[in-house]
């Protein structure tokens, strides 16, 4: 893969030119609403971009799979598809979130390709960036670390004096024209490697078991009802752990009329398997229903199974990428996968 270098002093000009050419989305802070926490949003000036961010509140999957996405518009004359991707650059994605993209790419492509996601994905140039600040609850340094990120078009690593920019596709190379990039020296390339390797040791939380060991033991723990009850005792079934998860992709589909009450839209919205009604079906009769995961403990277990074992074979590794967002989002402090893994392994 070709490696390039851009000086710190030229980086701002590069961003300015890039932003002028097409929409750029990257990690930013909204002082009014998100305080000192980061979100991925449209970057309108070079100064706004914060490549020193630790982790975003909502994962960048929202760029391809927004929290609410219109699927169809219907009206008196029929129905119309609403796939309308925007050519854009998503800049500053950490490698663990790229790993999540790799999973979603596979899952949304599986059997029935879902272009509501895939078209957005294809229209976006994804530029990853090195982790400059490690978030408090991250454990990507240990868990699933053998699975490498693949789905990015370029990778920016901050080194002494500037950035090493590695390109992995034509989309990644197309960005070169926006800045004063030169060839990276061998020293610069190895400095970038050292930087990225070093980040792996900086996570405060660590998983000491292999994903394979965890997968086997988790699956075998399915019927350990006491354990799941104990782990989920304080669970609110609030779904926060799902909503902030970069690899969760469940959704609900609903129809809604417009104010004219004649036309309307069919849309999907992020759903959470922890919430009570997720697996509920109507059966008829006197308003009867069956809830296939009625107890909170069953739903808590389902998430653990999904992240640690069910999808491993299909994805070539665990469905959890170790970002720690669920740990931060969980009010009763029970969603931390490291804690859950340790409890499962204890038996």
């Amino acid at each position: 893969m070709p490696a390039h270098f851009i000086h710190e002093t030229d980086f701002r000009e590069f961003l300015k030119s890039l932003i002028a050419s097409k929409p750029v989305i990257g990690p930013v802070v909204e002082p009014k609403s998100t305080g000192d926490k980061f979100i991925f949003d449209d970057v309108t000036s070079a100064e706004q971009l914060r490549l020193d961010y630790d982790v975003s509140l909502v994962p960048p999957k929202a760029v391809f799979f927004p929290p609410v996405q219109k699927l169809l518009e219907f009206g008196p004359n029929g129905v119309k598809s609403c796939i309308n991707p925007r050519e854009q650059v998503l800049l500053g994605v950490h490698f663990y979130d790229v790993k999540a993209f790799d999973q979603l790419d596979k899952l949304f492509n599986d059997k029935f390709p879902d272009n509501n996601y895939l078209a957005n994905r294809r229209a976006t140039t994804v530029i990853a960036s090195s982790v400059q600040t490690v978030s408090k609850h991250a454990f990507w340094g240990s868990f699933g670390k053998d699975v490498k990120a693949k789905g990015h078009d370029g990778f920016l690593t901050k080194v002494q004096g500037g950035y090493v920019y590695e390109t992995f596709s034509q989309k990644g190379e197309a960005l070169l024209k926006h800045g004063k990039f030169g060839n990276a020296s061998t020293d610069q390339v190895s400095a970038a490697k050292r930087e990225n390797d070093a980040a792996m040791d900086k996570c405060q939380e660590k998983v000491t078991f292999t994903p394979a060991e965890i997968s086997t033991k988790t699956r075998a723990s399915f019927s350990n009802n006491e354990m799941w009850k104990e782990l989920s005792k304080d669970c609110f079934s609030c779904g926060s752990c799902n909503i902030v998860c970069p690899t969760c992709y469940c959704f609900d589909v609903q129809d809604k009329w417009g104010l004219d009450q004649v036309s309307g839209e069919r849309y999907r919205t992020w759903d959470a398997c922890l919430t009570e009604d997720f697996a509920k079906v109507s059966l008829g009769g006197a308003g009867g229903h069956e809830n296939f995961r009625e107890a909170g403990a069953q739903r808590f277990r389902h998430r653990a199974m999904r992240k640690l074992t069910y999808l491993n074979e299909k994805l070539g590794g665990p469905a959890c990428i170790g970002c720690g967002r669920c740990t931060s989002a969980c009010v009763p402090n029970i969603a931390n996968p490291v804690k859950i893994i340790n409890r499962i392994m204890k038996g």
Partner: peptide
């Protein structure tokens, strides 16, 4: 369609800061 999930879902979708992370309390769960 009246939801039976808690307010947390809506906060998280909007990237709203959790009150508990701000030294506050909340009944959203």
């Amino acid at each position: 369609v009246i939801p039976n999930h808690p307010v947390c879902v809506e906060c998280k979708k909007k990237s709203t800061l959790c009150r508990y992370g701000q030294g506050d309390h909340c009944l959203g769960m």
